[in-house]
Design a binder for these strands. Sequence first.
DNA 1: ATACTATTGTTGTAAATGCAACATATTTTT
DNA 2: AAAAATATGTTGCATTTACAACAATAGTAT
Lengths: 155, 155
Amino acid sequence: MKDIKLHYTDSIHYELEQTARLMRILTQQLFERLELKLSPDEYSTLDTVSINAGVCQRDLAKLLLKDRANTGRILNSLEEKGLITRFIDTKNNRLVKKMGITEKGLKELDKINKKIKSYLEGVTQKTMSPDEVTKVQETLKKFRMDLEKIVDMKI
Amino acid sequence: MKDIKLHYTDSIHYELEQTARLMRILTQQLFERLELKLSPDEYSTLDTVSINAGVCQRDLAKLLLKDRANTGRILNSLEEKGLITRFIDTKNNRLVKKMGITEKGLKELDKINKKIKSYLEGVTQKTMSPDEVTKVQETLKKFRMDLEKIVDMKI
DNA sequence: ATACTATTGTTGTAAATGCAACATATTTTT
DNA sequence: AAAAATATGTTGCATTTACAACAATAGTAT
């Protein structure tokens, strides 16, 4: 007769959704308060580009879990701001648009990282020990990897 | 010289965001496949109403972390489908719209819960032990509670 | 008492998002 | 070789979302 967790609001899915939602709002407010020139989405895209040098747009979209259309639009904005460069290349004999972060982009990324890092770390440290953070992060990553296998991505 | 976690993509915030995003896509696809009459958002709203009987719209919005406008619109939809009823009441001497779930709503909620429960549990169990699930859930809840104190909700 | 402020819900609107359709090019099938 | 299928990026559109403005009411201040 163990009837716990009958409600969606008691599930880990709800907890994930709501925590992520709050985190997004907090980040949004932080970016506004610091008057950063990038939106949180542009920032995370720029960061992803800086790590995955030379990916094509579709592969980037897969990393960001966004569709190709929006990925392209964010890249347009980053390109207009001179933070990335795009160039035509081939991948499996196909023409693709690849991209790389510029010097200006690297500087901007570094600047934002410096500005937000300590604040965001303070937020997590308020609740969790460094060990707990690492543990949750690892568990979520494992979970995310499995989800990626299950979910049909249509990108 | 410990320079780990310099990137956003190595942060717990990124992990939360991406995992939640994947989870949302998976749930969306599941609801479509099962041809449920409600959207995931309507479902979670209905579930929240069923637990918090007699809340006013603004308080519900705070629970859902949505703004009042959208909360009202989702409630319109649920009311049109006959799953909730709304009635005028007072709270601190103020006129408010309260709501409750109907018999039909309870049945629908129960039906959906039955249909999705085992599937969603299977998804988590694929990666995590029940203990791990509980642990992560508790940690996230603690974290979420602290976030709610920090974030300025404007609802 | 009058004016100001705060609470609640709705409406309007601009931005973000996702999805389908399209254009182009390449691979695979027949 | 021709046709069909696949991969990539863009455009258009319909839905969702957030935010601001408004209407109505009640509490607070001057």
